[in-house]
C-alpha cells in the first residue's frame, strides 16, 4: 500500500535577528543610539518527512529549534528559507487552508476561554472550523465520552485543574477531526497518572483515525509510550532521525546491572563501573559499555564473590535523553 506523506520538510531554515545589548543602563543607552543586531539561526536547514499516521517525537534540548519548527509547520512563522509541505499545503502561504486540516496544542498557550466552561469553547471551535451542526454534535459528544469530560463541561476553565484543562485543550484541538496533530509540550506540568491518560488518548486517536502525531516533549515517557520514531535536533540542525528503539541503541552507552552477592564486596574499583547504590550485598552498578563489557565486569566480580542473583537492564529513556543532551553539550564545550 502506498504511503501518504503528511509532512515534508526540505532545507528549512529560520534566522531571528537578535538585538545584542551590554548589561546595565549604559548598555541600554548605547543600544538605543546604535543598536547592534546579530542573526541567530533557530533552525538550520533541516530536512525530513513524516508519513500519514506516524507518531513522531521531535526532540532536542532547550533552544534547539523544536518550537520554531512546529510554528513554521503550522503556518505561525515564516521561514527564512527552505520548503515545507504539510498535507500538501505550504504552511505559511496556505495557512488558512491547512488550518482546517491540522490541530495544534501548545502546552503553554491555551485556546480555551479562561472564564467560560469548555463547552462554550467547543461551540466557538465549531464555528471557527465551520463544522456541520450534526457532525459537530456527534464529534463533540464522542470526544466528551472518550476524554471523560462530562463532569467539567459546565465549569469555567479557570476552576479546572491543569490535567482537566489539558484534556479539554486536546479535545478542542481534535474537534474538527484533523489529519495531523502538532503538540508542543502537551504533558508539561502534569502528574504521572494524568500524563499516562493523555498519552493513551492521543494514541487512541492515532490508531482509530490515522491522525499523524508530531510532538515535542522533554518527557521521556511521552517519547517511549507514544512515539515510534524520533527526530532529534540540536542548535537547529538534525542529529538523529530514526526509530525510537534505534535512538536508544545509538545513545545507550551505559547498562544498569543489579546484583545480589553472597557477601558484602567492600570497596569496588573497576574501570567503567559506577556504583549507583548499595545496601550491604545488594548493588546497583552503571556500566559504561564504551569502556568495558558486561562480561568482563561480571568475570572480575565472580573471581572474588559469589553472585546470588543478577539482572542487566537498559537505563530508562529519561537517562538516555539526558545522556544524549549531555553528549551534545560536551561536544560543544570541546569545540
Amino acid at each position: 500500500m502506498r504511503k501518504v506523506r503528511s509532512i515534508e520538510v526540505e532545507q528549512l531554515e529560520k534566522i531571528f535577528q537578535v538585538k545584542k545589548k551590554q548589561a546595565g543602563l549604559a548598555g541600554s543607552l548605547k543600544s538605543l543610539i546604535k543598536p547592534h543586531y546579530t542573526g541567530k539561526a533557530a533552525v538550520e536547514g533541516i530536512t525530513f518527512s513524516v508519513d500519514q499516521g506516524e507518531t513522531v517525537a521531535f526532540l532536542g534540548p532547550n533552544g534547539a529549534g523544536k518550537s520554531t519548527t512546529i510554528k513554521m509547520l503550522t503556518g505561525i512563522l515564516h521561514p527564512t528559507s527552505g520548503k515545507a509541505e504539510v498535507l500538501g499545503c505550504c504552511p505559511w502561504t496556505e495557512r488558512s487552508k491547512l488550518a482546517y486540516r491540522i490541530g495544534s496544542v501548545f502546552g503553554q498557550k491555551s485556546q480555551l476561554w479562561y472564564h467560560l466552561p469548555p463547552l462554550d469553547t467547543f461551540e466557538l471551535m465549531s464555528r471557527i472550523y465551520e463544522l456541520r451542526r450534526e457532525d459537530y454534535k456527534k464529534r463533540r459528544d464522542n470526544l466528551i465520552e472518550r476524554f471523560e469530560l462530562g463532569p467539567y463541561l459546565h465549569t469555567p476553565v479557570r476552576k479546572l485543574s491543569l490535567g482537566e484543562r489539558m484534556r479539554c485543550e486536546i479535545a478542542a484541538s481534535l474537534i474538527h477531526r484533523p489529519q495531523a496533530l502538532f503538540l508542543d509540550e502537551p504533558t508539561i506540568g502534569l502528574d504521572a497518572v494524568v500524563k499516562q491518560r493523555i498519552r493513551e488518548l492521543i494514541l487512541e486517536m492515532n490508531r482509530e483515525e490515522g491522525t499523524t502525531i508530531f510532538l515535542t516533549s522533554h518527557d521521556a515517557g511521552d517519547v517511549e509510550k507514544l512515539c515510534d520514531r524520533a527526530i532529534v535536533i540540536n542548535h537547529g540542525g538534525l542529529v538523529f532521525d530514526g526509530r525510537v528503539d534505534f535512538m536508544k541503541q545509538q545513545f545507550l552507552t551505559h547498562k544498569t546491572v543489579q546484583l545480589l552477592l553472597e557477601d558484602d564486596p567492600g570497596h569496588m574499583a573497576l574501570e567503567g563501573v559506577e556504583v549507583l547504590s548499595r545496601d550491604g550485598s545488594r548493588l546497583t552498578l552503571s556500566v559504561d559499555t564504551g569502556l568495558t563489557t558486561i562480561e568482563s565486569v561480571l568475570s572480575a566480580l565472580m573471581a572474588s564473590h559469589r553472585i546470588v542473583d543478577m539482572t542487566v537492564q537498559d537505563p530508562p529513556m529519561e537517562d538516555i535523553i539526558t545522556r544524549m543532551y549531555g553528549t551534545f553539550r560536551a561536544k560543544e564545550a570541546v569545540m
Binding site: R2, V4, R5, E8, E10, Q52, K83, A84, E85, L87, G88, Y100, R101, Y129, E130, L131, R132, D135, Y136, R139, H176, R177, Q179, G210
Partner: peptide, 19 residues
C-alpha cells in the same frame, strides 16, 4: 522533492463545510 499529494489528503473524511 516535495510532493503535493492533495488528492490523497482529500480522501480524509473531514466534517468541515469550509469548501
Amino acid at each position: 522533492m516535495l510532493m503535493a499529494d492533495d488528492k490523497l489528503h482529500k480522501g480524509h473524511a473531514g466534517i468541515s463545510e469550509h469548501d
